[in-house]
Nucleic acid binder design. Sequence first.
DNA 1: GCCAACGTTGGC
DNA 2: GCCAACGTTGGC
Length: 150
Amino acid sequence: MQYWLMKSEPSAFSIDDLANAPHQTTPWDGVRNYQARNFMKQMQLGDLAFFYHSNCQVPGIVGIIEICKLAYPDFTALDKQDLHYDPKSTLEKPIWEMVEVRFKEQLPRLISLKELQTYHQHLDMPLLRKGNRLSIMPVTKEQWLFIQQL
DNA sequence: GCCAACGTTGGC
DNA sequence: GCCAACGTTGGC
């Protein structure tokens, strides 16, 4: 059982969008960063992840989601119309992958980046490091439990 | 909207 | 393989 943190811009896809989606699941498509992709490949069914709202008024953790489908090729990379189209990726040799996630719960309150920063010393997560741009990152069990009890 | 930080690209 | 130029991310 592993833990993760996954970022999404709520203007593109929010925790509410996921809660209202069919079966409350969605493919996590559009990841175009190798490090983030490699983390998705490591994900196992039943792994849990914090759903993080980025690039918005109050960035922070808003909910918990569960990995419900293992990594498979991200078909949006092949779609010329798609925002995340990548001409280097082909059907035979796909570059990008995605998992599917299911809504677990909305947190009783938003745990803002600002609040998390106050525990920077203790948490030491990639999320809290300056200039961090990684959209998917592992979370240790200790970090997970600490954040959950907030 | 600004801009710092970072990843990627491509010329050499 | 280096590195400048460029595009993107994401907090503010």
